[in-house]
Simulated assay, not measured.
Amino acid sequence: MENAWLGVVSAAHVRLGVAGGFAQVQHGKRHGLDRMRRGDGFAYYSPAETMGGRTPLRAFTALGVVADDATFQHDGAMYPGTSFRPFRRRVSWLDVEELPLDEVKDHLDLTSTPNWGYALRRGLLPLSLHDVGLLRARMAAGTVPAWTSA
């Protein structure tokens, strides 16, 4: 693995992506997804359970590996009565358990600088290999899976 990424999405939307084998970020925009390559690590951080939700979650909710080099657009409208067709990337999701940010905050490169939370507003940002390795070790359900390309 050469690169890793962090997507910032509600936990409810993360579950849709995990069930469907894809990642979607930045309200379905393509640009950030095009920067990813097959074999890159990918983690989701969920500030809340639902988009715009008032109850904070503040947890890492999914972890996987980008499965191929193709960004694709969802077939048909995602919501009835709309023309919203978001862009996505295929991800091979690992079997992981949710990890509260507070349990690893003091050990992540991501949170080591002042105002680190402001970067999360971008919706997608590079994640250090140190951080994705730490998340993998802490989130793995059962045995720690090896990083492999899908």
Results as ranks from 00 to 15, higher is better:
residue 91 V to H: 01
residue 40 D to S: 00
residue 36 M to Q: 10
residue 134 L to F: 10
residue 90 R to C: 02
residue 53 G to V: 00
residue 74 H to E: 13
residue 130 H to W: 13
residue 45 Y to T: 00
residue 23 A to L: 04
residue 101 L to T: 04
residue 115 N to V: 09
residue 60 F to C: 08
residue 95 D to M: 08
residue 143 T to I: 05
residue 60 F to K: 02
residue 20 G to A: 15
residue 127 L to M: 15
residue 57 L to C: 01
residue 4 A to I: 11
residue 1 M to E: 07
residue 48 A to S: 12
residue 11 A to D: 11
residue 38 R to V: 07
residue 117 G to F: 09
residue 132 V to Y: 00
residue 90 R to Y: 07
residue 66 V to G: 06
residue 91 V to E: 05
residue 14 V to Y: 05
residue 55 T to M: 06
residue 95 D to E: 14
residue 43 A to G: 01
residue 149 S to Y: 06
residue 69 D to Y: 08
residue 35 R to M: 12
residue 95 D to N: 15
residue 145 P to N: 10
residue 61 T to H: 05
residue 137 A to M: 10
residue 72 F to L: 12
residue 2 E to C: 07
residue 56 P to A: 01
residue 15 R to I: 08
residue 54 R to M: 04
residue 79 Y to S: 15
residue 43 A to S: 03
residue 98 E to P: 08
residue 33 L to G: 01
residue 86 P to V: 12
residue 42 F to H: 00
residue 74 H to G: 02
residue 5 W to T: 05
residue 10 S to H: 06
residue 112 S to M: 12
residue 27 H to C: 00
residue 111 T to G: 10
residue 5 W to D: 08
residue 138 R to Y: 06
residue 45 Y to R: 01
residue 95 D to S: 14
residue 19 A to Q: 11
residue 109 D to G: 11
residue 46 S to Q: 02
residue 94 L to R: 06
residue 14 V to K: 03
